[in-house]
């Protein structure tokens, strides 16, 4: 779970996940374009690539090679334990 929180601690990485929620399955080029034009972020392509590596190591982003292209997909599975640990439990308590 530590990797997930570390990955989410950075605002640019959270914004990348926002944009992958808006459209899942993007090339590095599209992600960079969206960060620049939709959010005014000026991270270099290399910096964005490194952010994606962190997200991928945390399991929040998966890459898919399709032929010669590489697409990035969001994976929210690593967020489930957070819900299980705090949110669902609170809901259960509240319903007692």
């Amino acid at each position: 779970m530590g990797d997930v929180f570390k990955a989410l601690a950075d605002p640019t990485r959270r914004t990348i996940l926002d944009e992958l929620t808006a459209r899942d399955g993007q090339t590095l080029f599209e992600i960079c374009g969206r960060l620049t034009t939709n959010h005014g972020l000026t991270s270099s392509r290399q910096a964005v690539s490194q952010h994606l590596d962190v997200l991928e190591r945390a399991g929040l982003v998966e890459t898919r090679r399709e032929g010669r292209y590489k697409f990035h997909h969001i994976n929210t599975d690593p967020l489930e334990p957070i819900i299980e640990r705090w949110l669902r439990r609170r809901t259960t308590c509240g319903s007692d």
């Binding site: 459209r23 090339t27 080029f29 599209e30 374009g33 939709n38 292209y69 697409f71």
Partner: peptide, 17 residues
């Protein structure tokens, strides 16, 4: 297409092979 039509600011783009 590797990028479907997307509007960013004033510009709409798409990317094809």
């Amino acid at each position: 297409f590797t990028q479907e039509p997307t509007t960013m600011g004033q510009t709409t783009t798409a990317v094809l092979d």
